[in-house]
């Protein structure tokens, strides 16, 4: 019995590896586009420049050094938690590309998930280059994060990406009911911008907004992983456990929505 499962797992790993390689090759074809996508993730660095120049309440919570570390970490986290599954899922469903995916013995979910991973891998050198340029222009921004912070930060980034991916995956399923779901992505951008800590650290928010934000997944997608990498005070274990909670929740709802959505699927466009 265990042999059967290990064989199945081995086959799945080989299939995932092949999809990942093909998707990586595809991303390399679009290298100019990846540079532009990476540049579009500069918002945390812009916010860093803005907050450093302003005399706001943030300065009482974050020192100048900690603020720059936070926003540089937020820049890194944002680069590796970019998700666009709602757009591609909608395109594939409406234009009929979903049909061949559904007829292969691997869940279409993995194609989308692995294409995001492939894009992240292809983004690594560009992000490193951008960080080098940033440090060359402002050497005082450089700091050497501790090994523990890096390892925990990487785990947090991966979990944060997975949570954000699953959140968007859940909303992608709306396609089965409304045929258009990508407009929800624009709607999701609003809480993401304000509650994830992208524009300002959550700790600088009024208490009631902060309490509200902590009931949503958004601070865990960006704010806390950034704090972990920046080496700021944070309960790492609690952050990772909360991320796991959101991941489990969204995975369960995603599976349910997929199950019911497929029954409504009309294979349009194919």
């Amino acid at each position: 019995m265990s042999n059967k499962y290990s064989l199945r797992l081995r086959k799945f790993i080989l299939a995932a590896r092949a999809i990942l390689i093909a998707q990586y090759s595809l991303m390399i074809e679009y290298r100019a586009e990846i540079v532009l996508w990476a540049l579009s993730g500069l918002l945390p660095l812009i916010m860093l420049a803005l907050w450093q120049e302003s005399q706001s309440s943030i300065s009482s919570i974050f020192s100048r050094d900690n603020l720059s570390r936070y926003f540089i970490s937020a820049f890194i986290v944002r680069q590796f938690t970019a998700v666009w599954v709602m757009v591609t899922f909608e395109e594939d469903t409406i234009e009929g590309r979903m049909a061949p995916y559904l007829l292969q013995p691997i869940a279409p979910f993995w194609r989308y998930y692995l294409s995001h991973i492939a894009e992240q891998i292809s983004r690594i050198p560009i992000v490193i280059l951008m960080l080098i340029i940033l440090i060359l222009f402002s050497p005082n921004l450089f700091w050497m994060p501790g090994l523990k912070d890096v390892v925990m930060g990487l785990i947090a980034i991966y979990l944060a990406f997975s949570v954000r991916f699953m959140l968007h995956w859940n909303f992608s399923m709306l396609c089965f009911w409304t045929e258009r779901s990508s407009s929800v992505e624009r709607l999701l951008m609003i809480p993401y911008l304000f509650l994830s800590g992208l524009l300002a650290p959550i700790d600088s928010f009024p208490a009631f907004i902060k309490s509200f934000a902590l009931f949503t997944p958004f601070p865990y997608i960006l704010y806390y992983p950034s704090k972990i990498i920046a080496g700021l005070e944070v309960n790492t274990l609690s952050v990772l456990m909360t991320l796991l909670f959101w991941l489990t929740l969204f995975t369960c709802t995603g599976r349910l929505l997929w199950h019911f959505g497929l029954k409504r699927y009309s294979a349009m466009g194919s």
Binding site: L14, A15, R17, A18, I19, I21, A22, S25, L26, E29, Y30, R97, P100, Y101, Q104, P105, I106
Partner: peptide, 19 residues
């Protein structure tokens, strides 16, 4: 089902692994 910007061999290898 072929990936538009890649040679067909890449799609074939993906299919082979999936099956």
């Amino acid at each position: 089902q072929l990936i538009w910007d890649l040679p067909p061999i890449e799609s074939l290898l993906v299919n082979a692994a999936i099956y």
